[in-house]
Simulated assay, not measured.
Amino acid sequence: MSTADILERNYPGRRAQLKRDILLGALACFNQHGLELTTIEIIKLHCDTSVGNIYHHFGSKEGLAAALFFSALDDQARLLGEYLQKADTAQEGVAAIVGSYVDWVTEQPELARFQYQARAAIAKGPQADELVAKNRSRNKNIFSWWSAPERHAHIKHIPADLLPSLLIGQAENYCRAWLSGRIPTSPKKYRAYLTQAAWLSLAITPDVK
């Protein structure tokens, strides 16, 4: 699925074509110049549109960045949901969580690259509450899947705020390095390693005094 397809799912129809075009152009500008250095004027020139159109549809550069960020976040959640629906055991659930993350990043590198650089700005910006709500909804769905007794037994000893880092932390670290060009090998090649590492991390039982 292309970035255009993802945006069309969130902004469907012919009347939203200009909005999708602006989002695609803004994505290219953000990834080329960085979020802070990209201006509305740069986006306007890249998209061959007017400043008025950009402000009409998104209100501000921050609103434009948030629209892109949430489109990416929603598509990640969609793919995770599809993978979890096919998982029955706890180990299959770990594979679904890690696998959906790795697959999404490798299939949507431009959106993923933008998402990494924009996360802190969105968390501190006017859309911070919306981000919190979306993250809470996603985490609720994940914990709901884990609530079955035979699955929950594998994670009940792990603090809830630590669990996402154990499951995704290693995959996220590798994906960031790959997207930055620091390492050449696609995360998909190491998906089995990253999945196994996440599974083994659930067996951690620290001696807490």
Rank of each mutant, 00 (worst) to 15 (best):
Q115I: 04
A112P: 01
E82H: 02
A65E: 13
L80F: 04
V98K: 03
E107T: 13
Q85W: 05
L79I: 08
P109Q: 12
Q85P: 00
A72L: 13
S71N: 14
Y83M: 14
F70I: 08
G81F: 10
Q91Y: 11
A66C: 12
K61I: 07
V98S: 02
A90S: 11
A87F: 14
R119D: 06
D88L: 10
L64A: 08
D88K: 07
L80K: 01
I97Y: 03
W104T: 00
A67V: 13
W104A: 00
Q115R: 07
F69Q: 09
G81L: 04
A120Q: 11
A65W: 08
T89R: 11
Y83V: 02
L84M: 15
L111I: 01
R78G: 01
L84V: 14
Q115G: 10
F70C: 15
Q91S: 11
A72N: 07
F69H: 11
L79A: 07
P109C: 02
S71D: 13
L64C: 05
D75G: 09
A90C: 11
V94D: 03
A67G: 12
V98Y: 05
V105N: 00
K86P: 09
A67L: 06
K86V: 08
R113P: 03
D88R: 13
K86F: 11
A87M: 08
S71F: 03
V98D: 04
E82C: 09
L68W: 04
E82W: 00
D75W: 03
G93A: 02
Y116K: 05
A65T: 13
V98R: 06
L79H: 02
E110P: 04
E62P: 14
S100M: 00
A90R: 05
E92I: 15
L79S: 04
A90Q: 06
A65K: 08
G93T: 03
T106S: 15
Q108V: 04
A96F: 05
W104D: 00
L80I: 01
Q117W: 01
Q76M: 15
V105H: 00
A95Q: 14
A96V: 05
D74I: 14
R113M: 03
